[in-house]
Design a protein around this nucleic acid. Structure first.
Lengths: 190, 190
DNA sequence: ACGATATCGTTCGGGATCAAATTGTACGGA
DNA sequence: TCCGTACAATTTGATCCCGAACGATATCGT
C-alpha cells in the first residue's frame, strides 16, 4: 500500500517543504530505496525460510560467514557479518547452545576464539542455503541478470565510499567538536 | 577491511561448497550488497548528522515521514517507516516527550491516533534534513546522477516484488504448514 | 437493536544491538 | 624477570525492536 509512488511523490513534497534549498533528489532516492529494499528483503527472508529453522537474520549471516570462510577468528566474523563484537559474543553463544557452532581457543594465541560449524550446523546450511538463495532469486525476479550485476555494482561503490572515506568525512564534519554522545548504551565513566 | 572482493570470492566458495547445486550468483550478490549498503549508510548517517541531534535512525525516519506527509494515522506512519506498530508507539512517545511530535485523537474514529510535528519538530527537520541529504550525496558520491537513477529503479523493483507478491509467496512456501513461530517475543497463548 | 467480527493503538515478553568498561593474554623493552 | 602497552573477547548498561496478547472502538449482518 505504501507503494513505490510514495518515494518520488515524497521527494516532490520534500522539495516544496524546503523551499529554496536544493535537494539532491537522485541521491536521496538511492538511499531511501536501499533502506526500503533491505527491510523488505530481510523481512521476507525471515518470514519465509529463516523462521522455519528458528534462525534470525543475524544468526543466519553469522552461520553463513563461518560456513563459507571456514573456522575463523571472531573479530573477522563480526566484521564480515556487519555486527559488533559484543553482539557476536551473544549470537555465537546462542548458536553454540543449539549445537550449530563450536567455539575453540586459538592454539598459540590465547586471546583468540575460533568459530567453526558443527556437523549439525553444516547440515543445516546445506539444507537452508538453497532455500535462502531461492528467495534471493524471488525478490530480484523483476531484474535481469544484467540488471542484477549493475545494481550490485552500484551498491558496491556505495559501500566502498563509506568504508574508505566515511571515517575521514565524519571527522571533517565534526571538526574539533566532541564525538557526539549516543542516547543508549553504557555511559562513559568520566 | 573486508573489502568488496570478499563478496565475489565468497560466491565462488559457496559454489564449491554446494557442489552440484546451482547458485544464483547475480541474485545473491544483489541481496548481499543491499544489506551491506544499508548497514554502511545507516551507520554513517547515525554517526555523523543524527547523533548530533540525539536522533536514532528510526526516530529520524518517523519524523521524516510525518514531516513530509503531514498529520498522519500511526498505522500509516509505521508502514511507511518500515517498523512495527508496537515500535512506533514507543518511538512516538519518546518524540512526544522531547516535544517534537504531537499525538491527537481522530475526530470521528476513536481508535485512531494522529501524529504531527510540533513547531520545534518542524524546525528540527528544517535544520537536520539538509545535513542528512548532504550525507546522502556523500555516500553516493561514486555514482553519477544517471547511475543513481538506475540503481534506485532496480531497488524499487525489488521492493515492489516483495510488497506485491511476498505474502502470496510465503503462503505458497509454507503451504498448509503452520506460520512458523519466532524464537523471541511474547509466547502465543495456546 | 445488538451481538459477532474486524481493526486500532498499546502493552508486554524476550531477545538483539551497540559502545564503554572490563578481563585476560601476548609481547616488547628495561 | 617484570612492567607497560597492545590487543583479544566478554560483560554491562541502556535502548531498540518485533510480534502476540490485550482492551477499546467501529461496523456489519440479521
Amino acid at each position: 500500500m505504501p507503494g513505490q509512488r510514495s518515494i518520488t511523490e515524497a521527494e516532490k513534497l520534500a522539495g516544496a517543504k524546503l523551499g529554496g534549498i536544493p535537494v539532491r533528489h537522485e541521491q536521496m532516492a538511492v538511499v531511501a530505496n536501499i533502506y526500503r529494499a533491505a527491510s523488505a528483503v530481510r523481512q521476507h527472508l525471515e518470514n519465509s525460510v529463516l523462521r522455519g529453522s528458528e534462525l534470525t537474520w543475524t544468526a543466519f549471516v553469522v552461520l553463513w560467514v563461518v560456513w563459507i570462510w571456514g573456522e575463523s577468528e571472531t573479530r573477522h566474523v563480526a566484521e564480515e557479518a556487519g555486527i559488533s563484537k559484543g553482539t557476536l559474543t551473544g549470537v555465537s553463544r546462542t548458536l553454540e547452545a543449539r549445537g550449530l557452532v563450536r567455539r575453540s581457543g586459538h592454539p598459540t594465541d590465547g586471546r583468540l576464539v575460533l568459530l567453526s560449524l558443527t556437523n549439525e550446523g553444516e547440515e543445516l546450511m546445506q539444507r537452508v542455503f538453497p532455500q535462502f538463495n531461492e528467495e534471493e532469486a524471488f525478490v530480484t525476479e523483476r531484474l535481469s541478470d544484467e540488471e542484477c550485476r549493475s545494481v550490485a555494482e552500484g551498491l558496491r561503490r556505495v559501500v566502498l565510499q563509506v568504508e574508505e572515506q566515511g571515517e575521514e568525512r565524519r571527522l571533517a564534519l565534526l571538526d574539533g567538536a566532541e564525538p557526539a554522545p549516543r542516547r543508549s548504551g553504557r555511559r562513559p565513566k568520566a
